[in-house]
Amino acid sequence: MLNTVLRRGAGFAFLWWVLAEGSTVAWGLGAVAVAACVAASLRLLPPRQGTFSLAALIAFVAFFLWQSMRGGLQVAAMALSPRPGLSPCMLDYPVALPPGPPRLLLVASLGLMPGTVGVRLDDDRLRLHVLDARLPAAAEAKALEAVIARLFGRRTA
């Protein structure tokens, strides 16, 4: 518990420092804001068991940056090519990640990955719109799921 409070407090204090652009003029107000944020976060998101690993976070961010760059370049190439090689299709993808934050992060990130946009999520079935049917969309979604599972300290089945 104390561990969680300290960790979250440090996180919010860092956020305050960034928002204040390093200025120390209003640190009193900052302390109040940080305390309020920690209290609110404990209420809304109680401490839970689970291993948070910095390595997994870095892996996710790196994967995300690389994939969103690929996604952007791909869609830019399609938009600017004289004959866009579009052959869109719908794909029903079975989601292995549990409901809650992991699933939310999956659907949110898929919108930025190359060639996929989430259309609707019903239970464990996610309908994806794929920009080009020749793309390995399901395999890429699987790879993303694995990275997210590691971030939340779980393994995909």
Binding site: S68, G71, G72, Q74, V75, A76, M78, A79, L80, P84, L86, P88, G111, L112, P114, G115, V117, V119, H129, L131
Partner: peptide, 22 residues
């Protein structure tokens, strides 16, 4: 590129790809 995609792509789903990614 995103704007060009928005102008050229054939339906709302593909236009969404252009905006969301580019």
């Amino acid at each position: 590129a995103g704007t060009v995609g928005l102008l050229r792509f054939p339906d709302v789903y593909t236009r969404l790809h252009a905006l969301a990614k580019a």
